[in-house]
Amino acid sequence: MSIWRYANPAKFMATTERLVPALSWLAAVALAVGLVWGFFFTPDDYRQGSTVKIIYLHVPAALIAINAWFMMLAASLIWLIRRHHVSALAAKAAAPVGVTMTLIALVTGAVWGQPMWGTWWAWDPRLTSFLILFLFYLGYMALWSAIEDPDTAADLTSVLCLVGSVFAVLSRYAVNFWNQGLHQGASLSLDAEENVADVFYLPLLVAIGGFVLLFIALVLQRTRTEIRARRLHALRLRERMA
C-alpha cells in the first residue's frame, strides 16, 4: 500500500470523511488554546507593548501563506506527472485558503507596523514579496475560474504554478536587492540568537499548530467539495447529451 491509493477519489472521500471533522476539532482546540494563551496570559514586550500579541496571528498566517503555495506546487507537479485528479483539485482547493492567509499576514503586519514603524505600509522586501505573492494567488485563482473544461484548467494552472514559483523566488531576490528592509529577522529559526523570547515561544508554537491543522482540514474539506463538483459537472454534461 502506498500514498497513491488516495489518488482514487472514492478512497480519498472515504478516508477524509472521518478525518476532516477530527482535524477540524483539533484545529479549533489548538487555535483556541494558542490564541487565548497568547492574548490573555503572555506579558507585554518591553519595547513593543501589547502589540507583540499580534505575532500569534501574523507569523502562523505568513508561514501558511508561503507553504500553501509550496503545497500547490507539489500538487501541480503530481498532477502533471501522474495525472491524479485529486491532486489537481487539492491545488485548486488550497489557493483560496492561501490567499486568505496572505491577506491576514498583510493586514496584521500593517496594523502592527503603524505604531511600531510609524507607517501602515513600507516598501520593505518582506512586505513587498507578500504583496507579490498575493498577486500570484489572484492570477492563479482567476485562471482556474476562467477555464470551463476541468482538465484543461488543471493543466494550465499547474503550468502557471510551476512558472510562477520560479518567478516568485526570483522576485524575492530582486526585491531584496531593490530595497533593504525594516523587517526583523526570522521569528523562528534554529539559530537561537534570532528567536523570539521563550515566553512568547510556546503559545506561538501552539498557534502555528492550530493554523497548520486548520489549513489541512480546510484543504481536505475543499478538495472533497471539488471532487463532488467535478462529478456533478460530468453528470450534468451527460444529462445534456442524453
Binding site: I132, A142, T152, G164, F167, A174
Partner: peptide, 22 residues
C-alpha cells in the same frame, strides 16, 4: 495560457504583470 478564452485580455494582464516584477 489564455489563448482559448473569450475575454482573455484582462486575465492576461493579471497573469503576466506579476511575472514582470523582477
Amino acid at each position: 495560457l489564455t489563448v482559448g478564452l473569450k475575454r482573455g485580455g484582462l486575465l492576461l494582464s493579471l497573469l503576466v504583470l506579476p511575472l514582470y516584477v523582477p
